[in-house]
Simulated assay, not measured.
Amino acid sequence: MTEQTPVTDRRFPLITDEALDELRGRIGRPFRPPVPHVTEATTDSIRHWALGIGDANPLYVDPAYAATTRHGGLVAPGTFLYAFDRVVSGYVGGLPGVHAMFAGTDWNWKRPIRVGDRIAAEPALKELKDLKSTFSGRSIKQTYQVTFTNQDGELVCVADSWCIRTQRDIARERATRETVVPKTWTADEIAEVAAQYAAQRPRGGEVRYWEDVQAGEVLPPLLKGPSTVTSFVCFTQGWGSLYVKAHAQAFDMFREHPALGIPNDLCIPEPPERVHWDNALARAVGVPAAYDYGPERVSWLGHLMTDWIGDDGFLKRLNVQVRKHNILGDLTTCRGTVTRTWREDDEHLVEVAVEGRNQRDEVTAIGTAVAALPSRG
């Protein structure tokens, strides 16, 4: 077997004007997206998604409970749509060999997702923005818009989702200037995390009325983590991942997209997605350790909101930017603060500023959520 360059020493392609021009030609043009992980909302697929993001709300996982609510049966968290389309989850085309880091989604939901819904996604490249980055020199913000419709042709959601394309070699060289060491937790700290988890619960059937909400109200915090490879695997069981394939299907993928086959330390090609469990490849792209999936963190902030809203509210919008890597060992605390309330088109709306913050007190995700609540009127 021919000896291959270790991943930590391998040189990767840079962003070029020629490659960007080719990619710009795809803006607005329809294309066939990769096969989704889920095409129908079933009792099982909804449960797998909910538990994959750590959300055991009985509205999503207990059919008997859900039947007693105004929904009359199980519904799904809105972020479940990540499992219906790989593009909204961070799959990008063009710029082969240039790393893609998921950076956020702006979800706009129109109706709940119910058991039996068959949902199709139609993605299109929306925008390319040239950026200057302290992380990797030149970088590109690549945004797609994805429209989701159900089996009746009804609009379920429109979402803009974006990745930042970064130059791996420059990011690796610059990353040596600052070292973040994954946290080692004490037994007492883990016991405190466990106690906080034990106290977390959704609002459930206790109605939160719009009239009772005031600007400045602080939502109960929601813990996620500490992050482990196991927790990342748990998320992929519900979500499906981007490039995780095995056996003949993996080699078919590498044949069609050669830049996806990055040799591991045994010289076997594996996809760049292994930055989520392979510390060596994570360091090769400029991150100090393996890190979580961005859609996972967006979904955590959705969980924060739906726990607070209760069974009778509806999360209409969730716009979240992923700001920093959430590496192995990190504990994320999700928080929210009501910023305003208003009425529009017979709906009673609440806006909440949301964020995820780690144990180093760094904001790793930030955004805005809008919920419709029932009114006493």
Rank of each mutant, 00 (worst) to 15 (best):
M1V: 09
T8W: 10
T16C: 05
T16W: 04
T16K: 08
A19Y: 07
G28C: 07
R32E: 15
V35L: 14
D44M: 09
A50P: 06
N57F: 03
H71S: 01
P77D: 06
L81I: 12
A83P: 08
F84N: 12
Y91C: 07
L95R: 08
G97S: 12
H99R: 11
G104N: 04
N108W: 00
R111W: 01
I113A: 09
D117H: 11
I119R: 05
A120V: 13
A121K: 13
L125F: 11
S133V: 12
G137N: 07
F148K: 00
D152T: 10
V156R: 00
I164F: 15
R165Y: 11
R165M: 11
A171Y: 02
A175C: 09
E178G: 03
V180Q: 06
V181S: 01
D188V: 14
V193L: 05
A195V: 09
A195K: 14
R203Y: 04
G204F: 06
G205L: 14
R208W: 08
Y209P: 06
L219R: 04
P220Y: 12
P220I: 12
P221R: 10
L222V: 15
L223M: 14
L223T: 12
G225A: 07
C234Y: 13
T236L: 11
G238T: 08
G240R: 01
L242K: 06
D252S: 11
G261K: 03
P263H: 04
E270K: 09
P272H: 11
N279D: 13
L281D: 00
A282I: 11
R297T: 13
L301S: 02
L304D: 11
T306K: 00
R317E: 14
L318Q: 11
L318H: 04
N319L: 09
R335E: 14
E344G: 08
D346R: 10
E362I: 04
T364F: 08
A365E: 14
L373A: 10
